[in-house]
C-alpha cells in the first residue's frame, strides 16, 4: 500500500491542478473561544496570530479588483478578529457572497450578542460545526457545555430566519466524526440530524456537510496518543476514490493565512505548504489567472479529501 498521494494519483492517470479561483478562503486568525480536540488549526483562546486590518484591506482589494464570487471566512473563530465586521460589510457592499465558518458558541462571547442579527442584516451564509445531535459526542470533541450553547445559538439563528424555509438565509451544519473513523453518507446523516434536531429541540437548518477529519495537527496528535494513526491512514488510503479528485475544493479555491500568504487549502496552510512556486505567493500579488492552472501541492493528508465520498469545506464531493 502506498501512502504517497502523488503516486496514487498517477496510478489512476490523474494529476491535481486548479481550474479557477471561485472562492477566496481567508483564515483571519487562530484565536478561538474553543479548543476542539480535532482542530487542524490548533486554534484556542491562547493563540495570538490574527490578521491585521492592513492585510484585510489587501483581501478586500483582491475581491474588488478580480470580482471573486465568494469570500469564505474561517479561523479560529473569525468573529473574534477586530476587522471581521468591517471586512464582511465591505465585501457584501461589493456584491461578494460571504460565508462564515461560525462555531455557534462565539455568539455568547462579550460583544457578540447581536451576531445572528449582524449575519441576517448582511445576508451571510452561516456554516457551523455540530459533530452530532447528541451532547455526549459533541462535548467530547468540542468541550464541555458546547452542545448546550450550540443548541441555543441555532435557536437564535432560527429566530432571525436562518435555516427557515423561504427566508433565503442559509444555515448549513457540519458533521465530522468524533473519532478515528470516516463520515457516513451525507444524505443519510443529514436526514437523522433534521429529524432529531426538529423533534428534540424544534430546530431547523438547510444542509448538513460531512467532513473527514484530516490527519494533521491536533487530530494527528489524538491519532498518535490513541494508537490509531496507522489504522486511520490505512483506512483513508484504502478508501481512495478517484471520482472524488475532480471535486476537491483546492481546484476552485485559494486559501489566505493571517499574514496574507497563499495556500491551496486551509490544511496546507496549517502545514505551511504554500502554493506552487511559480504562482503568486501573497494576497498582495494575488492574480486569479496565474493561480487558476497551478499544480496543487499535496501530502499524505490529501487522502482525507479523496476517501469514500470525498470531503471538502462544502461536504462530500463524489
Amino acid at each position: 500500500m502506498t501512502f504517497d498521494f502523488e503516486q496514487k494519483l498517477a496510478s489512476h492517470g490523474l494529476e491535481l491542478r486548479a481550474t479557477s479561483v471561485a472562492t477566496l478562503q481567508v483564515n483571519v486568525g487562530k484565536l478561538c473561544n474553543q479548543a476542539c480536540k480535532h482542530c487542524h488549526v490548533d486554534a484556542s483562546p491562547k493563540r495570538t496570530e490574527i490578521m491585521t486590518r492592513e492585510t484585510a484591506e489587501q483581501v478586500l482589494a483582491a475581491l474588488r479588483r478580480f470580482r471573486i464570487l465568494t469570500l469564505d471566512l474561517t479561523g479560529g473563530a473569525p468573529e473574534l478578529n477586530p476587522s471581521f465586521r468591517w471586512l464582511v460589510t465591505e465585501a457584501r457592499a461589493l456584491g461578494t457572497h460571504v460565508m462564515v465558518r461560525h462555531n455557534l458558541t462565539v455568539m455568547f462571547e462579550p460583544g457578540q450578542e447581536d451576531l445572528s442579527e449582524f449575519f441576517r442584516a448582511h445576508q451571510i451564509e452561516v456554516i457551523s460545526s455540530l459533530p452530532y445531535f447528541q451532547e455526549q459526542q459533541t462535548d467530547a470533541q468540542r468541550g464541555n457545555g458546547v452542545f448546550t450553547k450550540s443548541i441555543e445559538a441555532i435557536r437564535r439563528l432560527n429566530a432571525v430566519g436562518y435555516g427557515v424555509d423561504g427566508s433565503g438565509l442559509h444555515l448549513n451544519l457540519v458533521y465530522n466524526p468524533v473519532g478515528a473513523f470516516l463520515p457516513p453518507a451525507q444524505s443519510a446523516i443529514e436526514a437523522d440530524f433534521k429529524r432529531e434536531l426538529q423533534s428534540r429541540y424544534g430546530l431547523t437548518f438547510n444542509q448538513l456537510y460531512t467532513i473527514t477529519n484530516m490527519p494533521i495537527k491536533r487530530f494527528l496528535e489524538y491519532l498518535r496518543r490513541s494508537g490509531n494513526e496507522e489504522r486511520y491512514l490505512r483506512k483513508l488510503v484504502e478508501a481512495f476514490n478517484p471520482n472524488a479528485v475532480a471535486g476537491v475544493m483546492c481546484r476552485r479555491l485559494v486559501s489566505v493565512d493571517w499574514t496574507g500568504k497563499l495556500y491551496d487549502c486551509d490544511f496546507n496552510q496549517m502545514l505551511e505548504l504554500g502554493v506552487a512556486e511559480n504562482a503568486p505567493q501573497t494576497i498582495a500579488e494575488f492574480d486569479p489567472i496565474k493561480l487558476a492552472q497551478r499544480r496543487i501541492v499535496t501530502g499524505v493528508h490529501c487522502f482525507g479529501c479523496t476517501a469514500g465520498a470525498g470531503s471538502s469545506c462544502g461536504g462530500a464531493v463524489a
Binding site: P177, P184, A188
Partner: peptide
C-alpha cells in the same frame, strides 16, 4: 463497530 459508526449509528 467501525461500519456502524461510518454509517451514522451511535
Amino acid at each position: 463497530s467501525q461500519s456502524c459508526l461510518e454509517s451514522g449509528s451511535n
